[in-house]
Design a protein around this nucleic acid. Structure first.
Lengths: 118, 118
DNA sequence: ATGTCATGCTGAGCGAAGCGAAGCATCCCG
DNA sequence: CGGGATGCTTCGCTTCGCTCAGCATGACAT
């Protein structure tokens, strides 16, 4: 059955995943699945991060020096790649968060008053 | 160098242009340039809509039946294509605006309290 | 009338990035 | 041992905004 899937997830707008990942890593090192889970939870399951988006994004961020990776062991005892926010990553997070707020504000203005979030 | 570029515009996140166009057309028929101008203004010049994004988007929206087009004459007396929101377009606008708000709220939750817009 | 500029539209091609799906490895447990 | 869960990788597709080049036409100065 499938009307069971009451709460369908929103698709990510392009360019927002990096921000979400960086923000999630503020709370400490995490591996891929952990990051995806954390994003899902802290968005009240509105956002769903797909594998095919997540891992390329992590590699992207690592290549840019915003996160650092090392192999470790997950709490389920599997080999997993743990990512840590670098100093540059922290700065990038601030930049992206700021940009996001400007953007959201701009859109909000255009959508009008009823766009205020509750 | 070139710290001269005081007010740089934000790039659009993919998927938001349709929403902006539909919303702009709420106030009545407009031609391409007029739409771009209106978006710029109502966002306090934070958003800039490029030609190469605008016109394909308009064709896309027309193909989907959300806007209707007819040739007319601009106030500068040039031949211009005027777009009108269709009934389906109005519905689409509501859908997209709702989706945007859900999305922005979800991101806001992840960014944390300081993400509230003033 | 003629050349130049502003206005407005079109189109090709590019790149970024999210998605879906297939696949591999490893560990756990019966 | 064999099946399932966990985690990572990668390929190809699609969407969509951007850059850039180009065309047509009206306005205006000479």
């Amino acid at each position: 059955m499938s009307t069971r899937d009451e709460k369908e997830r929103l698709e990510l707008l392009q360019g927002t995943l990096d921000l979400l990942i960086l923000r999630t890593l503020i709370f400490g090192p995490q591996h891929g699945q952990g990051i995806a889970r954390a994003i899902g939870q802290s968005s009240h399951e509105e956002l769903l991060v797909e594998h095919g988006a997540l891992y390329p994004a992590l590699q992207r961020l690592e290549a840019r020096g915003w996160i650092a990776a090392r192999w470790g062991t997950s709490d389920k005892n599997r080999k997993a790649r743990f990512y840590t926010l670098t100093k540059a990553g922290r700065k990038q997070l601030v930049r992206e968060a700021t940009k996001w707020r400007r953007f959201a504000t701009a859109i909000g203005r255009i959508l009008g008053p009823e766009a205020e979030e509750g």
